[in-house]
C-alpha cells in the first residue's frame, strides 16, 4: 500500500534517509522514530507527493505520487490523509475545516458539511464544531485533524503531529482510530508508540541521525 524503496533525500546541506526501505501493508501500523531532523516529516511529504526523493522511489497503491500527472496525483491524494503539524491554519470554523477535507476529496459541499458535522459529533467534539479553528487549543486541533483524516476513509493515514495534549482526543475518536487500524487502513505515525493517542502496537522503524555531507 505504501512503499519506500531505497529512498534518500537531502534536507538543505544535510543528507537524510540513506537508501531507506519501508513497506506498510493494509491493516498495518508503523511508527517511525528518530532524532530531530532525521527525515520523519520528509517521509510524510514524500508520500503526499509534495517532495521528491533525491534517489529511490515512493509508491502509494503502486503509483509514484510525485511522478503522477496532475489528475493522478490528485487521485492519490484523495486516498491518503495527512494529519500535519505544520499545516497553515485557515480562517474557518472547525466544522468547515473538516468539511473542506471531505469536499476537496470530491464530496459536494452540502454533503461534506453534513458528514463533517456527524463525524465531529461521533468523535465527541460537537462542542467545538462552530468555533473558529484557529482559536482552538493544539490538542483539540489535533483531534479535529484526526477526525478529518479518518472521515476521508483513506487507504493510508499519515500522522506527523507532535502534541503534548494527547488527552484532548476523546474516547470515541480513539476507538474510531483503533477500528480504522483494525480494518484495512495503513498508518504511518512519526514518533514513538503510545504518543498522540495513537494506539500502541505496530512496528517501529528507527531513522539514523542526519549526516553532514551531501
Amino acid at each position: 500500500m505504501l512503499q519506500y524503496l531505497h529512498v534518500s533525500g537531502p534536507q538543505g546541506r544535510v543528507w537524510v534517509l540513506r537508501a531507506f526501505n519501508l513497506e506498510i501493508k493494509p491493516g498495518e501500523l508503523v511508527h517511525v522514530t528518530g532524532p530531530s531532523g532525521a527525515g520523519k516529516s520528509l517521509l510524510v511529504r514524500m508520500a503526499l507527493g509534495s517532495v521528491a526523493p533525491a534517489s529511490g522511489t515512493v509508491l502509494v497503491n503502486g503509483q509514484n505520487p510525485y511522478k503522477s500527472s496532475g489528475a493522478g496525483r490528485q487521485g492519490l491524494r484523495r486516498v491518503v490523509s495527512a494529519v500535519l503539524d505544520d499545516e497553515p491554519v485557515l480562517n474557518l470554523t472547525a466544522e468547515a475545516w473538516v468539511a473542506l477535507g471531505l469536499s476537496c476529496g470530491g464530496r459536494p459541499w452540502p454533503a461534506a458539511v453534513t458528514e463533517a458535522r456527524a463525524a465531529i459529533e461521533r468523535a465527541g467534539l460537537g462542542a467545538h464544531a462552530g468555533a473558529p479553528f484557529a482559536v482552538l487549543s493544539r490538542g483539540v486541533r489535533y483531534a479535529l485533524a484526526l477526525v478529518r483524516g479518518l472521515a476521508r476513509k483513506p487507504h493510508v493515514l499519515l500522522v506527523d503531529w507532535a502534541v503534548d495534549d494527547g488527552d484532548a482526543v476523546p474516547g470515541p475518536l480513539r476507538a474510531e482510530f483503533a477500528a480504522y487500524l483494525a480494518g484495512s487502513g495503513a498508518c504511518l505515525v512519526t514518533g514513538a508508540p503510545g504518543l498522540n493517542a495513537v494506539p500502541a502496537g505496530g512496528r517501529v522503524e528507527s531513522l539514523a541521525a542526519p549526516a553532514e555531507d551531501a
Partner: peptide, 16 residues
C-alpha cells in the same frame, strides 16, 4: 500560498 498548499494536499482539483 499556504492555503493553496492545503487544498492541493487534500486532493482538490486544479479548477477548484
Amino acid at each position: 500560498r499556504g492555503e493553496l498548499r492545503v487544498y492541493a494536499e487534500l486532493g482538490a482539483s486544479g479548477p477548484r
